[in-house]
Design a protein around this nucleic acid. Sequence first.
RNA 1: GCCCCCUUCGUCUAGUGGUCAGGACGUCAGGUUUUCAACCUGAAAACAGGAGUUCAAUUCUCCUAGGGGGCACCA
Length: 475
Amino acid sequence: MSETVITRFAPSPTGYLHIGGARTALFNWLYAKHSGGKFLLRIEDTDQARSTEGAILAIIDGLRWLELDWDGEPVYQLARAERHRGIAEQLLAEGKAYRCYASPEELAAMREKARAEGRAPGYDGTWRDRGASEAPAGIAPAIRFKAPREGETVIEDRVQGRVVFANKDLDDLVILRSDGSPTYNLSVVVDDHDMGITHVIRGDDHLTNAARQSQIYKALGWETPIFAHVPLIHGPDGTKLSKRHGALGVEAYREMGYLPAALRNYLVRLGWSHGDAEIISTEEMIAWFDLDAIGRSAARFDFAKLENLNGHYIRAMPDSEIVRQLKTLIPHFPDGAALGKRIGDDGWVKLERAMPGLKERAKTLVELLDNAEFLFATRPLKLDEPAKKLLDDAGKTTLTRLLPRLEDVEPWQQEALEACVRSFAEETGGKLGKVAQPLRAALTGKATSPGIFDVLEVLGRDESLTRIKDHIIAT
RNA sequence: GCCCCCUUCGUCUAGUGGUCAGGACGUCAGGUUUUCAACCUGAAAACAGGAGUUCAAUUCUCCUAGGGGGCACCA
């Protein structure tokens, strides 16, 4: 029987959960789900200078928002330092590691020399075979892993294929710093082993690390996990994704009004595909996801496609669900807290009624709320003279275009409609495009936007309202 | 500099030793809606370049170019 698949997401909490990390987490999560295995979370907080509590929270919050649930409690790497130290000592005792007394200056000189000679700027092995007797006094040594110098290290990567590294290009890396703290490549190996990780799915910036880690696994006599190094996500210009590309943490996407399902769908298609499938439900993703279908080339981040997907998911979502989501999300939106207050219980009811017309034309939840502004506007609006004139003209234009469509327009109706358009335009601050649609929709009875009726209700034209409604229904 | 990886429409990608090289986003043109959005129809749009293998290469091999990643007592 095959062993249970255990994957993990192991971010270092030095910032938010960025989009590349989110995809890595998603892939790990999907593969675990697909295989009926487990997905674990490990916080690699060993860089105490850069790790922050806030970043840990941001990452956990981001994963929760994306609905990528992990099994068990998160493992904190820093808390396991003693175990890592123990392994380093063990390696040392077994002669698979050694003490290195080289100073930072010496190491710098070494790198320079190697570079000048056209080699990889690594450690030259000065202390590899020197005895302890030669150790300079008063210098705390680091412990280096005694990497094989000949032969090659081969990674059978599920994404990259067979990748071969010449051992001479891989130097003896520090596994325990002179201050006694373990380094990344040791901690990762020990933790992945102890956590029973069977599949390491991560960014391909770790590919060379995989070679070094593989050597450590071998020295320890441990079985190497299966590696899958997925290509990185690039910015629209093809260079590494950075802040200037708007590549923020996932919480930024939440703030921009993207839905987790849309982001997941977008991310899974970056580097992975299943035939021509584009709109992929979470269930389908789990059923179809496989390491072998992951592409080998980097993908560029494309906001337009994300928006399109997001619009799709908004349209597909039930009205009540959108309102529910909006209620919890609104504090995260720009000026959301104030807007939330303005909306009030009454406003949420109106919003849900207006949803059919609203959700069709919004690509993000923020945009949707923005388009719904006319429902919550404080009345009466204060308008200066030029604005009034503008609205008057616009109102007339709208009316002359609309009225011929109505049969048997009576004077009272014309009056009511004119008032309607005018106040409606005022309500929306003059965005006639937003006025005309629901108005027309109400008049033709074709769309379901209740916007016009809401305005009338607010303005207290109940009688006219009823009669217009009747007229519309009759037509 | 050294090591590793990558290269199909603008973007994400499918695909095969013989295909009209398919889909999606975006773009453009129509339709629908007398706005917008959504929706429908259509169009333009790609195998980086050069050798080689082969009856036949986008597909296999090599080289070049371009892009990316890595080379810490960071993770």
